[in-house]
């Protein structure tokens, strides 16, 4: 159960290798969470998530359980959520953090790779998100944290496959949040700017970057106050309010 100051007991991370996702889980563990499920492709094979599990145990987690989860197999998603609930009981927080950034030039040359990436970044979240929502609604409480991105706020020419998938995800999460209104379950959308991680190592840094830890802090603060949308860093909200108004001819030329 979530308590009055935003601390929770159990966390399910969908995308168990996501650096940002793990930073958020670690923060929640430091704030009191004891039970963690790390769901990722091949997570149940030996030694796949040992390092992350060790890190979370060192932060104070009593239980870290691996769970197989493949974003590209929507038919399995409801079972994955059920399995997670069997492992730790009520899911207090589910962090939806899977996805691939990829490389725009590669996508433009390989439409199939682009569609696969869009599946991982968007459609996989539709089946997983709805399965999570059903579970949270039934238990009468719980928060789904969706890792969106500013890339989806206004899609750019420089990374439009990824941006479009994030735009779809963001819109889906907003609608899901409205659908869950007054059910006890909630959706929190996180819109980070550029975060230097392994996934983003191949792209050059953008203005207003944030670290994974800053994203985790912002999520923790949002949980305390019940925020619905969290921008990291916060000023990106105002930056994008302006960028949204740029003429298309200028926006098209944005370097990245």
């Amino acid at each position: 159960m979530r308590n009055a100051v935003g601390a929770v007991d159990s966390v399910l991370l969908l995308g168990g290798r996501s650096e940002i996702g793990l930073a958020i889980v670690e923060r929640l563990v430091r704030d009191g969470a004891r039970k963690v499920v790390l769901a990722a492709r091949g997570a149940e094979e030996p030694d796949r998530i040992t390092a992350s599990a060790e890190r979370l145990r060192a932060a104070g987690a009593a239980e870290v359980r691996p769970l197989d989860f493949d974003a590209a197999r929507p038919g399995t998603h409801a079972d994955v959520i059920d399995a997670a609930a069997k492992l730790v009981g009520d899911l207090d927080i589910v962090i939806d953090a899977f996805g691939v950034l990829g490389e725009q030039t590669v996508f433009e040359a390989d439409p199939v790779a682009a569609a696969d990436a869009a599946t991982a970044t968007f459609t996989g979240h539709v089946s997983a998100g709805l399965a999570v929502a059903a579970r949270l609604k039934e238990q009468g409480h719980g928060i789904l944290v969706v890792l969106s991105s500013v890339a989806g706020v206004r899609v750019r020419r420089a990374n439009f496959v990824y941006g479009a998938a994030k735009a779809g995800l963001d819109g889906f999460a907003q609608g899901l949040g409205d659908a869950l209104h007054e059910t006890g379950a909630r959706v929190m959308i996180v819109r980070p700017g550029y975060v230097p991680t392994q996934m983003s190592a191949h792209v050059s840094a953008a203005p207003f970057p944030a670290t994974a830890e800053q994203v985790a802090d912002a999520v923790a603060a949002g949980l305390r106050t019940g925020s619905e949308i969290v921008w990291v860093p916060r000023k990106l909200r105002f930056v994008f309010a302006g960028l949204r108004l740029l003429p298309r001819a200028v926006w098209r030329r944005m370097p990245r």
């Binding site: 159960m1 100051v5 009468g140 409480h141």
Partner: peptide
């Protein structure tokens, strides 16, 4: 009726019948 409930502190609402 399915309703959201909190205590007097108005923190951590959950839904119940």
């Amino acid at each position: 009726q399915r309703r959201l409930l909190t205590g007097w502190g108005r923190t951590a609402p959950t839904a119940a019948t």
